[in-house]
């Protein structure tokens, strides 16, 4: 069963529907008309480009192109993490990249290669969208974890020093901050998992059902993906924090101030 295609004329009509929020914005003087137009334009261009290159990637379905694309996704996500966590890219980029790459690859191996087992194993139809979902969530979790971890050690400099003076090794001294950083990074995904199917109908499942899959197949994928994402974000936050310590603390186990953008 194929999904019903949306005609270009219908697409034009859908864009026309945007007049409703635009009129509301004008009437209430929300001042968001420009932002709406720019955002919709950006979405159209970004998704248009994505549609084109995904079409291209799916057609070639080459192991090197697919792997390269996965790495590109990870690298772009990592740039975003660096920027939004307020860290200097030059200082921590490679250690963070290592953390997110290791955890993503382990989860992809477990979920796609061992569970779904597509033929060929690098099949872009599975590898690209599933990796995208995993990396996107890892990115969000890493931003929270890194920002919390480093800003909290920076803010509690004397507390951190007290732990070191009580005999804690660097690993032992960072542990309370690591816990306080990882928990909020995992919390949104945990509550999403708990309310899935009640509060929200997951996007992936909806997409699969619209695409013609049976609801049971769609649910199996959705559960698998949620487990994969949660495992990946747990691994990536802990691993990224631990790996980033190598470059973020000086020889005296004191947090380097030059890792921060400001």
């Amino acid at each position: 069963m194929e999904a019903i295609n949306i005609r270009y004329s219908t697409m034009a009509m859908l864009y026309g529907v945007l007049l409703i929020p635009i009129i509301i914005s004008i009437v209430l003087k929300l001042g968001t008309v420009k932002t709406i137009l720019i955002s919709v334009l950006r979405m159209t261009l970004q998704l248009g480009a994505m549609g084109l290159y995904l079409d291209y990637i799916f057609r070639f379905n080459n192991v090197w192109i697919n792997s390269g694309y996965v790495l590109l996704m990870i690298a772009v996500a990592n740039f975003t993490v660096n920027k939004n966590a307020g860290l200097r890219t030059a200082r921590v980029f490679f250690t963070l990249m290592l953390g997110i790459t290791i955890s993503t690859l382990i989860v992809i191996a477990l979920f796609i290669f061992l569970s779904i087992r597509p033929e060929p194993f690098y099949d872009a139809r599975y590898l690209i969208p599933i990796t995208g979902m995993i990396v996107g969530n890892c990115m969000r979790a890493n931003v929270i974890a890194l920002e919390r971890f480093y800003s909290s050690i920076r803010k509690n400099e004397k507390e951190f020093l007290t732990y070191l003076l009580m005999g804690a090794s660097l690993r032992e001294a960072i542990l309370p901050y690591l816990r306080d950083a990882v928990k909020p990074a995992l919390a949104p995904m945990l509550s999403t998992i708990a309310t899935l199917g009640i509060v929200s109908l997951p996007g992936m499942m909806t997409g699969q059902i619209l695409g013609g899959s049976s609801p049971i197949v769609a649910i199996k994928y959705q559960i698998g993906v949620m487990i994969a994402i949660f495992t990946a974000i747990t691994m990536t936050t802990v691993l990224t924090l631990l790996l980033s310590m190598k470059t973020s603390f000086d020889n005296y186990s004191i947090l380097r101030k030059d890792i921060f953008r400001q």
Binding site: N156, K158, E159, T162, Y163, L165, M166, G167, S169, E172
Partner: peptide
């Protein structure tokens, strides 16, 4: 060396835990 500031860090919720905190570290 011990460092004790104006607002010392206790590092645990209960005072007993805070007194014994250093002994949870491997070296002690």
């Amino acid at each position: 060396v011990a460092f004790i500031g104006q607002e010392p860090v206790l590092g645990a919720e209960k005072i007993r835990d805070s007194l014994l905190l250093p002994f949870s570290y491997k070296v002690n």
